[in-house]
Amino acid sequence: MEIAEIGSGVDSSEGRLRAYHLFYPVANRRFVGFFEGRRLGAGDKLVANIPFGGMSDNDIVDVLDECRCKGNSETQINVIRIATEEDLRLFRENSEKEEDCMRRASRIIESVGVKMNLINAHLMPFSKLIVLFFSSPSRVDFRPLLAPLGKEFKMSINLQQMSFKAEARNSDCYGICGRKLCCRSISNVVDRSCVTLKKVKEQKESLNSAKMQGPCGKFFCCFAFEEEFYKSQKKNFPSKGDRIVTAPNESFRVVDMNFISQIVKAENEEKGVRSFKRDEIMKSGNGEWRIIAGLV
């Protein structure tokens, strides 16, 4: 089967296999799926097979955009069909019942005495299955819950333990910027590479972990978003230790720079530390930095 390329001028005729970024709002997860048929657009609804630990079941996903990537064993899911009006009706009806399911499940968890935080309850639209998402600081033996939950709901029960990062994605928390958490409001943030301590140091942030971590206990997502900015700015700034020549017999050694304020700090043994605006200096042919004529 031929796979269509994005931007190749291929029309939307039947028989083309295309890859799409898909979003599963129930768990706030992003996948890659293939669909053969008409070209899909953002907001289209599909029925796809969603993995839950050691099992899977069909549910509704949203199309984000067309993509070139083929995914991998962790991100690729099997697309069944375009969701019909009947599929969407079942999904809406189940969604209306989920708040009541949360209350009933929470009551049972409290009565049994299992230490876990119930995050979400989801009724699968195409089977008699309820998925209960929970978090806990340690592994949980939830076997004592299966019998009372099964008796209460009279359907199959699947309990999914979520990481603190996944819990933050599914919460309505706000960051220190006053906006909703990136992992909650921006669907593709979960695909960004891990924010490492090296990236944080490159952005010249304080190594005070309390100021760098979100509710999930991981580094802020914004470090990943701002990485390209810092990489591009680094190319246009002198490095630490570079010389800035200000007069025939006078130069300063760069000790620090601020990409946001566009300031370079340099030191001279006799004159101390001096701040230069980035547009006040330029790199000469021999690799030295010089102050632009007329700005001394």
Rank of each mutant, 00 (worst) to 15 (best):
V254E: 04
P238E: 01
I244M: 06
I244R: 06
E269S: 05
I260P: 12
F252C: 11
S261D: 09
K235W: 00
N258K: 04
S261P: 08
D242A: 15
K271L: 05
E250C: 13
E269K: 08
F237E: 13
K265H: 05
N268S: 04
R243E: 09
K240G: 07
Q233K: 15
A266M: 02
E269P: 12
G241C: 06
D256A: 09
V273D: 05
I244S: 11
K240E: 04
A247S: 15
G241M: 02
K235F: 00
N249W: 14
R253C: 09
P248L: 04
F237A: 04
V254Q: 10
T246Q: 09
P238K: 07
N258A: 03
S251W: 06
R243G: 05
V245N: 12
Q262I: 00
P238C: 02
E250L: 08
I263Y: 03
E250A: 08
E269H: 03
N268F: 00
K265Q: 07
K234W: 06
Q262E: 02
A266L: 00
V255Y: 02
P248C: 09
Q233E: 12
D256V: 03
M257P: 13
I263A: 10
S261N: 08
V264D: 06
V245A: 07
V255G: 15
Q233I: 02
S239L: 06
V254P: 09
N258D: 14
P248H: 06
R253S: 14
T246S: 15
E269Q: 05
N236Q: 11
E270Q: 09
E250G: 09
I260H: 13
T246C: 11
N249C: 14
D256S: 14
R253Q: 14
A266T: 00
K235C: 01
A247P: 11
I260Y: 10
D256E: 12
S239P: 07
D256F: 09
V245W: 02
G241K: 05
I263S: 12
V264L: 05
V245Q: 12
K240I: 10
V264G: 10
K271Y: 03
F237D: 13
K271P: 02
D242I: 10
N249S: 15
V255T: 14
R253H: 07
K265A: 08
Q262Y: 00
N236T: 08
V245R: 12
